[in-house]
Amino acid sequence: MTVREEENAGTAPAIGRDELLTLYEQMEVIRRTEKAAHDLFLSGLVKGTTHLAAGHEAVAVGASAALQPGDYVFATYRGHHHAIARGAAPAECLAELMSKGTGLCKAKGGSMHLTKASAGMLGSYAIVGAHLPMAVGAAWSAKLRDSGEVAVAFFGDGATNIGAFHEALNLAAIWSLPVLFVCENNLYMEYTPIGAVTPVGRPAADRAPAYGLPAEVVDGNDVVLVAEAVARAAARARAGAGPTVLETLTYRHFGHSRTDPAKYRPAEELQQWLQRDPLNLARQRLTSAGVPEAALTAAADRAAAVVAAAVEEAKAAPPPDPEDAFTDMWADGGSAWRT
């Protein structure tokens, strides 16, 4: 029941040259933020762990380009790119990673829980698959209110083997909810090739027919193709036609987490994917469209400046107030009276 492209021709707005340049710049910001996070970690300034999304930029930026401000996004512990694509500033993200008081969640979330509810970024979740039913609930709220909003759950290939994935697809299907299940298939469930632990070739898309859901496999490194696929699925959802499963094919440039050099990945595979770097693909598209090299360089320079300033801002930020550890436990704002 895979959606064929021709069936949906015309439902996606074409991405113009100027918009693509903006998307490219956003991807540069994310790439440089991830690189900065890596460097800060190596300098001992990130306490804890990080799961970098360098290589996945096109999924987040492409999807965000196709969504409305009122839509809801749920991401995973590898979610920095989604937070930034939805409007979180690199400085508040880096500050969160560095456990600073100016972090997105005043350091209560850390790298794995970037959340910006005001931007429709309804959280990053470190329990694999846990957020898929939540996206179903958010989509259900949109349906009950007839609001036209859609919910998007991003998840990795590994999440397709956990029960919550299957429960969520079933729930969304039976209630025909406006939710997009977007798999970022980067070939590895942490350290294990997904193919070694999954009986089907496309872990998300191949499971969708079991729930009567349409699915589409998308080049996750091409920001334009991602944006078009998400726009098609979102249009279906807004039209009351229910959920769609999108499986985007992408690749991590770093290992699973900070301690993983990812030596288990074949050198040829890595090389092939690095050649298909989403930033390179976007640049190629822009060049073909006649955008001069100087405009690309200027966009990259602006991104570099934003991230460099964000690093300095995060470094200079104060640590969290220890008293904050006792706030916002409860609806009354506190926690101390319940010790």
């Binding site: 898929l132 939540m134 179903v136 609930g137 958010a138 989509a139 259900w140 429960e167």
Partner: peptide, 11 residues
């Protein structure tokens, strides 16, 4: 999980 999603949106 679905209930959490609904509550996130005011239910």
């Amino acid at each position: 999980g679905t209930a959490i999603g609904l509550a996130l949106r005011g239910y």
